[in-house]
């Protein structure tokens, strides 16, 4: 094998291309999630939240912030990354990617890197917006950034897999809509799982989103439904699983090379 091990200009090219797409579609990609989240804060935080008690010593408005950030992060990571790789497949421009001197490593770093960057930006924007409505503190800022980045990367990778798998627009939408949205709503974004009846407390532990929300909330307020180490472990395990699937897809040529 000759030549460099990693095609750095290719990673840069894909990353720049994807980021350019983000800024071209600023309204849909950044502003609309920020607006949606603001609506949640107005309804749940200010209107309803003022009539609700504290959860684990934290005001309800502040309590839901980490969960809401996760809600947007998950949806946006998945749909951005899925769309990013689905579009070239759909428009036919994927030929260039497939005929370029790149391996799946460059493709994933470029596409997933850009999608994750966008998600982190979005997360920061939502947190800044939330500050307008509710005062909150961040107990473990370094861990908060780590969980934000880890979640963004993991779910961008998951979205990337969906984009590879989808061969029409319906399939592109179905997983975020039918799987991710219910899981996030039931993942403890708006409540602590201690508030559920006992059997549901156990069932809900099969929902991976519970771990994400719990860990993220811990980085803010030091309270968690599940042990933080377990949460981080579960997220890393999911990341590893996604990496394995992407590696397999490119190795086998599934849905890419005939």
């Amino acid at each position: 094998m000759s030549g460099p091990l990693l095609n750095l200009p290719a990673i840069r090219a894909i990353y720049r291309f994807e980021m350019a797409r983000t800024f071209r579609t600023l309204a849909e990609s950044i502003l609309s999630p920020v607006l949606t989240t603001s609506l949640y804060f107005i309804v749940f935080g200010a209107a309803i939240g003022s009539r609700m008690g504290e959860v684990g010593g934290v005001g309800y408005g502040a309590f839901i912030i980490p969960g809401l950030v996760m809600l947007s992060l998950l949806n946006e990571s998945i749909s951005n990354a899925a769309f990013g790789i689905f579009m070239p497949k759909w428009s036919g421009t994927i030929y260039e990617l497939l005929s370029a001197p790149v391996s799946f490593v460059e493709i994933v770093l470029g596409y997933v890197g850009a999608a994750a960057t966008k998600s982190v930006l979005l997360g920061v924007l939502i947190l800044a917006t939330a500050r307008v409505f509710v005062p909150y503190e961040i107990a473990h800022p370094v861990w908060m950034v780590c969980f934000l980045a880890l979640t963004s990367v993991t779910f961008s990778l998951f979205g990337f897999i969906i984009g590879l798998w989808a061969d029409d627009f319906q399939k592109l939408q179905i997983v975020p809509l039918m799987v991710i949205t219910p899981l996030t709503f039931l993942g403890g974004a708006f409540y602590s799982i201690n508030m559920l009846p006992p059997p549901w407390q156990t069932i809900t532990l099969f929902n991976p989103v519970v771990y994400l929300v719990s860990a993220f909330r811990w980085s803010f307020y030091g309270i968690a439904d599940v042990n933080v180490v377990v949460s981080a472990g579960m997220t890393l395990a999911f990341l590893a699983l996604c990496l394995g699937v992407v590696w397999w897809i490119f190795r086998s040529g599934y849905r890419l090379r005939t």
């Binding site: 750095l8 200009p9 290719a10 090219a13 720049r16 260039e96 990617l97 370029a100």
Partner: peptide, 8 residues
């Protein structure tokens, strides 16, 4: 520019 970068 994208094409040139993609090809390293």
């Amino acid at each position: 520019r994208f094409s040139r970068g993609l090809f390293g």
